[in-house]
């Protein structure tokens, strides 16, 4: 009888295979965004769920810019930057959100390193912007892969997302840099820190 069930199982699998396709067609939307990707992945055969290539390559490019920015004044700061880039690449290859975030953090570490070493403010700004964008694109690539898979055409949404983030980042950093240039009249850094803190809190309050 156990043999019979073996056949029956085969058939079940087959029908599940079919069914699975439906589930992934229907059900994954609900789950995709959250971290239960592992859960969905095991059920869904036949769909390549690795991160979207376009966003992934953009992420690496942004990471490279970050390394460039941190290495601009302090060459040694490029070392942790490159390490971050490697972690990022590994995370993108394996589709691991944690690794991508880790890579972003290490990239930021490179920026800190450069900052402590006395790197030029513009370089640090570029480094931080690159690191955040690298994480943003990388995370988006993973989500896109989980929700839609690599076979789907996701180029336009990825492009839009990337452009929006880049635009916001570039304009925002430009404004920040402009303020910095205009107001570098010897204000105590501590005062500026509190100013920043106030902005963060204000933004948080306004969003509620």
């Amino acid at each position: 009888m156990s043999g019979t069930s073996a056949v029956a199982n085969d058939g079940d699998e087959r029908t599940n295979g079919h069914d699975g396709d439906r589930k992934l067609a229907a059900g994954e939307g609900a789950t995709g965004s959250a971290d239960d990707a592992d859960d969905t992945e095991t059920h869904q055969r036949g769909v390549d769920r690795s991160p979207a290539t376009f966003s992934a390559s953009l992420s690496l490019l942004a990471g490279l810019f970050s390394v460039l920015g941190s290495g601009l004044g302090v060459l040694t700061a490029a070392a942790p930057g490159f390490a971050g880039l490697l972690v990022l690449a590994a995370g993108l290859y394996r589709g691991s959100r944690r690794a991508v975030t880790g890579g972003g953090v290490v990239l930021l570490g490179g920026v800190v390193f450069a900052g402590v070493g006395g790197g030029p403010p513009a370089g640090l700004l570029l480094g931080a912007l690159g690191a955040l964008l690298a994480w943003d694109y990388g995370e988006n690539a993973i989500t896109m892969g989980e929700q839609l898979g690599r076979a789907a055409d996701t180029r336009r949404a990825e492009l839009f997302h990337a452009a929006a983030s880049l635009g916001v980042g570039v304009v925002g950093s430009g404004v920040v840099y402009g303020i910095y240039l205009g107001a570098s009249g010897g204000q105590p850094v501590t005062a500026l820190v509190f100013l920043l803190l106030a902005v963060v809190l204000l933004a948080g309050v306004l969003s509620e």
């Binding site: 700004l125 980042g169 925002g172 950093s173 910095y180 105590p188 820190v193």
Partner: peptide, 24 residues
């Protein structure tokens, strides 16, 4: 860090990028 490390304005500037994205 900018305060701790000898008042580095550059670090503060880099940190401001975080605010930009938070506001976004």
């Amino acid at each position: 860090l900018a305060i701790v490390v000898d008042r580095q304005a550059g670090l503060l500037l880099a940190g401001a990028v975080g605010v930009v994205f938070a506001a976004y």
